[in-house]
Design a protein around this nucleic acid. Structure first.
Lengths: 212, 212
DNA sequence: CCCAATAACTACCGAACGGTCGGATGTAAA
DNA sequence: TTTACATCCGACCGTTCGGTAGTTATTGGG
């Protein structure tokens, strides 16, 4: 194999992210990975099947660094930072672009997108359910995801990541306010970010990875 | 003229919204409005020019019903309701889809998208600047837009509008907390939605148009 | 009613699309 | 070295893409 499966999927992801489902072409993908188009079709049945692979890879990458050993708050922060960090790095969200673009004509792609966001939502809600009741946990998870995704608007338009940074700060600050206003912190020894009066005047929190 | 300019632009908007820039085809647009493809090119110079028209029409529709006579809070609410209402109705945001999809190969389209969101942002910030300082007004405007746009994620995935409803409620509740915690209300005589302790336990506010 | 102007049409262009096929090429065991 | 197998590739399919040229239909003013 001249090129590994993962390299192809990663290249496909970049295409889907920047061009959308309809705008990404198999020829373009073949050129990028240094193969011919026919060779791609001996690895993947069709274009639509690439969507599932792309989203599975992305899901794996997001949760690779997350473990629940440090408690719900640390896990929650790790997940949100992992997601928003990669979004700032790449400028757009593949899954969101596919959610918008893979319409009725690509039902398997749409199903993969649903699966991706459902997995993120479930994992977040599960993490939060240590601190709040399940219904509220799911609501917080849904809102957190949509707020992070929404912040990619300004990333896509003018590359501005400050809205994302602000969103992340607020989500974490709001998380500190959960569980009956108890004092919680992500890492012992981490300066600032107290939760005494957690809902106002949050201090400029730690920067996103790769964003000074 | 068999078909008015506005009908064509509205049909193009639907296509761009559901298929993205690359996925929307001139042939498809021609079929929908009952013209031949060549006729479209006698009205619009090219596909990219349609983007500007689509976003201008959308901008006009959004702000058609908004006036500043009732004070900043009423205007702010009117704008947010106008935007989120049309998003719930249509299930996606054209401008957001175009922001993601119209990439480097369509610079005029990208410029139009930037203009659209800049106009929304400016109008919102201008409205808010009656209550808070300009910098904070701009920040609130940016965040409000991105939160509303983000809520379209769940609309696109499974048609669920509850996240949008929740987002709208929170944005309005947070607006009530502005201007130094003064008591403000949108319309005198409107039941509920007080702002005495505005930042918690917001009551289920008025439904979006078309969402019982 | 005529004529000019506008609007819509038919027919076509080269390029790119997703996808397929049969043969060439590399590789590792026998 | 032969065999067997997976991989890759050149060439091609039918279709659709954005866009254009030249021609016909429609329409409003005189």
């Amino acid at each position: 194999m001249k090129v590994s499966q993962q390299e192809i999927v990663a290249a496909a992801r970049e295409l889907f992210r920047n061009q959308g489902y309809a705008g990404a072409s198999m020829q373009d993908l073949a050129d990028r990975v240094g193969l011919k188009k026919a060779s791609l079709y001996s690895r993947f049945p069709d274009k639509e099947a690439l969507v599932g692979e792309v989203l599975q890879l992305t899901l794996d990458e997001i949760f690779a660094t997350v473990d629940d050993a440090g408690g719900w708050r640390a896990a929650y922060e790790a997940i949100l930072r992992s997601i928003s960090g990669s979004l700032v790095e790449r400028g757009r969200c593949v899954a969101f672009h596919l959610a918008y673009g893979a319409s009725a004509d690509a039902p398997r792609a749409m199903e993969a997108v649903r699966g991706f966001f459902t997995a993120c939502r479930r994992r977040l809600a599960e993490t939060l359910s240590t601190a709040v009741e399940p219904g509220e946990a799911d609501r917080i998870a849904v809102d957190a995801l949509s707020r992070i995704e929404g912040a990619t608007l300004w990333l896509a338009i003018d590359g501005d990541g400050t809205a994302m940074q602000r969103t992340l700060d607020r989500l974490l600050a709001e998380a500190d306010g959960l569980q009956g206003r108890r004092r919680v912190r992500a890492k012992p020894g981490n300066p600032g970010k107290t939760a005494g009066q957690p809902r106002r005047k949050h201090s400029r929190a730690a920067a996103l990875p790769g964003r000074p």
